[in-house]
């Protein structure tokens, strides 16, 4: 069936089976491969994208359920001229990534977390990212990066 949604401000319409998962719609039908599939069981958070501004695990959403939604993926964060989003820059500066596989999901989950939680502190960031796993175990610098970005985005306590 026809499913249309806005991804990073661009309207897409694709003809997909009802069982198509949102993550595959984004990666394979639209071709935005920045969003990764990790565990495929809504545990690891690698596939996190924003759906109408809130973080969701796109391996556990059917594409048909996202009809008419506004999706933001990692590709939608930087400026058109390539200037990185404060979160992306903070991950780079704080060494918040090692192998990088969890990073797109970490960044998208962090963006939702920062927007929803004024006054973030270390504990709140750690708890707020409980749905995202980093198998390089680089959590320490990820938390640092999120706090730096929250500060820069003007929402830290």
């Amino acid at each position: 069936m026809k499913v249309s949604m806005k991804i990073n401000g661009v309207e897409y319409e694709r003809d997909v089976e009802p069982r198509r998962l949102l993550v595959h719609y984004i990666r394979e039908d639209v071709g935005l491969t920045g969003t990764n599939v990790g565990c495929d069981t809504s545990s690891c958070g690698a596939c996190t994208v924003l759906m109408d501004g809130k973080s969701v695990k796109s391996c556990t959403v059917l594409a048909v359920q996202a009809e008419g939604a506004e999706i933001t993926t990692i590709e939608g964060l930087a400026e058109p001229d390539g200037t990185l989003h404060p979160l992306q820059r903070a991950f780079q500066e704080c060494h918040g990534l090692q192998c990088g596989y969890c990073t797109p999901g970490m960044v998208m989950a962090s963006l939702s977390l920062i927007k929803e939680n004024p006054g973030l502190d270390e504990r709140k960031v750690r708890e707020g990212l409980e749905g995202n796993l980093c198998r390089c175990t680089g959590y320490h610098n990820i938390v640092k990066a999120v706090l730096q970005a929250a500060d820069e985005m003007g929402v830290k306590a």
Partner: peptide, 9 residues
């Protein structure tokens, strides 16, 4: 329940 992403949906 779950994690923030799960609670959003």
């Amino acid at each position: 329940v779950g994690d923030p992403q799960v609670r959003h949906r």
